[in-house]
Design a protein around this nucleic acid. Sequence first.
DNA 1: CCGAATACATTGTAATGCTATGTATTGTGC
DNA 2: GCACAATACATAGCATTACAATGTATTCGG
Lengths: 126, 126
Amino acid sequence: MYSAEHNGNSDRSGHWEAQLRKGCLEMAILASLWHSRLYGLEVLRALSEKSQLEIAEGTLYPILSRLKAEGLLQSEWVEAEAGHPRKYYWLTPAGRRRAREMAVAWSEFSTNLSALMLPILGVKQR
Amino acid sequence: MYSAEHNGNSDRSGHWEAQLRKGCLEMAILASLWHSRLYGLEVLRALSEKSQLEIAEGTLYPILSRLKAEGLLQSEWVEAEAGHPRKYYWLTPAGRRRAREMAVAWSEFSTNLSALMLPILGVKQR
DNA sequence: CCGAATACATTGTAATGCTATGTATTGTGC
DNA sequence: GCACAATACATAGCATTACAATGTATTCGG
């Protein structure tokens, strides 16, 4: 996400984009684990590369912890052959179900909202 | 939005959809005013009809108030020929600029996130 | 041994809806 | 005229969720 601060807007202007993302992060993190288990920083990198979604570490770990507490993720410590021990996470069956539900809800929600934004983008409507 | 409570999930399950919407409401409300000024309950109806977005009154008015305080909206009381006085809102030039910025950011954000959700929906990727 | 890099974790704070509730005005029926 | 319903707007306590700042722990390299 580009910074909006260069616009010289009011002191709130830098914050509205963050609000756009709130609420989507759990879903995005679950989605990042759809294909394979990953450790924390791999999740960060996956999200950054696949969807330009930048999450801070301080944000990520509480979310992972919350999802685990809710039974949507499982985790285990793995001693690396070289380097640091890592905590790997993967989706539980309940986690896969949740991810699907969220994907469906997101698809509908985002389609509806995007239709609302079309006139503003100057896109022709049918 | 359909209710997720019929799934019999944990007590948090009914709340994640609400979180998906948070952060999008300011943008949606600004967008609802793109073409013409509206009074409060017209905004509600416009959002419900155009994008199936249901916002409670208790949510709408603080947002309208906030956007006005930020200089993005203007408002005035109008005595109706029949019925109740209504408070009409419309976008200021700064409001139109913000709406455009948000529309652009949303377009990019939602496209990226949707791409992340495609595998879960079982949609083929190129 | 020390500093850097990597990996994970925590907490106070700010922001934003949700829920419940309340105020005010107009219209209708009795 | 009065009571109630409908309409319209408003508010505040609470729950939730990131963000930012900070900290702990481990490994590696000089």
